[in-house]
């Protein structure tokens, strides 16, 4: 049936945040082939992240990591009936435009890829499709939402099979939300200033004493007004105003249950599935544990299904910490 497009609104904030809400309680899995996308869908994933290499391989290979080849993403889009996400480099609007034109359902502006802009993320309100962005703290989360992110995930430390960073980020965001809800107005103003300072990286690089006028998201005053608006929403709700997932290092059903118990809305699993011994079973087990995170018997059942999980890395041994990219 032909639709009159003129009376239909596309790409609104409500549609973007609404899309993320449909992912609640779900597991989003990294896949590198259409066959893996099918395995993910059959195991109960709510979406797949289409990639050339999972984070563990990106880490092992080194070099500059970029957006995946369009052919690969297209192949996965054509195979699976669930939503397809893909990663763009931080601040790389050019890659994001390619992903938008390809028809991916959500863009992950991801620190797992090599950042393209050391100072700014992508102005996400200018796009018709939603973005998910990583955070290590409340300030990062607020800046990303102010820039138009429709979904937040903890950064964790991708490709390690080690959840320690994901737990740290979840705890810090929680604690900082509670702080904002109870602090006095002087502390509140200090917090706002600290969050807005995150936009002043470029200014700090100048030896000419340049005062920053413009960011990709408007003037610095407009950014501050946006930050205040998001902080107000956070204080009222006692949580981030967008769906918040955990990511980075989740490798077992118990890892997934742990992060869900921290109050996250769902789970991204990157290397944890297809770097494990039996990916099909790992995928099913992590979905089961995510769904029944508060029922220890079900998490036992999920854990028993598992063969060997991916091997893990100590964070001290890493050459590159992805979590430090793009604050």
């Amino acid at each position: 049936m032909a639709l009159d497009l003129a009376t239909m609104r596309h790409g609104t904030t409500l549609l973007k945040r609404g899309f993320a809400k449909m992912q609640e309680g779900g597991v989003i899995m990294d896949v590198v082939t259409p066959e893996q996308a099918q395995v993910a869908e059959d195991a109960g994933a709510t979406a797949v992240m289409a990639l050339e290499r999972v984070p563990a391989d990106i880490r092992a290979d080194g070099g500059v990591a970029r957006m995946s080849h369009p052919q690969l993403i297209r192949g996965i889009i054509e195979t699976t009936s669930i939503p397809v996400m893909a990663k763009a480099r931080i601040g790389h609007s050019g890659e994001a435009r390619v992903l938008e034109a390809l028809g991916v359902d959500m863009i992950d502006e991801s620190e797992v890829l090599t950042p393209a802009d050391p100072f700014y993320h992508i102005p996400k309100d200018e796009f018709s499709i939603p973005f998910v962005c990583g955070c290590t703290s409340l300030g990062e989360a607020v800046r990303r939402i102010q820039e138009g992110a429709a979904m937040i995930r903890t950064k964790g430390e991708a490709g390690t099979g080690n959840v320690v960073s994901a737990v740290q980020h979840a705890r810090l965001v929680d604690e900082e939300i509670r702080f904002l809800q109870t602090c006095d107005s002087a502390a509140h103003e200090t917090a706002i200033a600290a969050i807005v300072d995150g936009y002043r990286g470029l200014e700090q690089k100048s030896v000419l004493g340049v005062k920053l006028q413009q960011t990709p998201f408007g003037t610095i005053e407009q950014c501050e007004a946006g930050v205040r608006e998001v902080v107000e929403e956070v204080r009222t709700l006692g949580r981030l105003p967008v769906v918040t997932f955990s990511a980075g290092g989740i490798a077992t059903p118990a890892d997934a249950a742990l992060l869900m118990q921290h109050g996250l809305d769902g789970i991204f699993v990157g290397s944890g599935i297809f770097k494990s011994e039996d990916p099909t079973t790992t995928a099913k087990a992590i979905v089961l544990a995510t769904h029944h995170f508060s029922d220890p018997d079900k998490v036992v059942e999920a854990s028993e299904m598992m063969a060997k999980p991916m091997s893990g890395l100590e964070l001290e041994d890493l050459d590159v910490r992805y979590e430090d990219r793009g604050s």
Binding site: R9, H10, G11, T12
Partner: peptide
Amino acid sequence: GRQQDSFQAE
């Protein structure tokens, strides 16, 4: 279609 075809309408 896909997410970019998601819409609001009366």
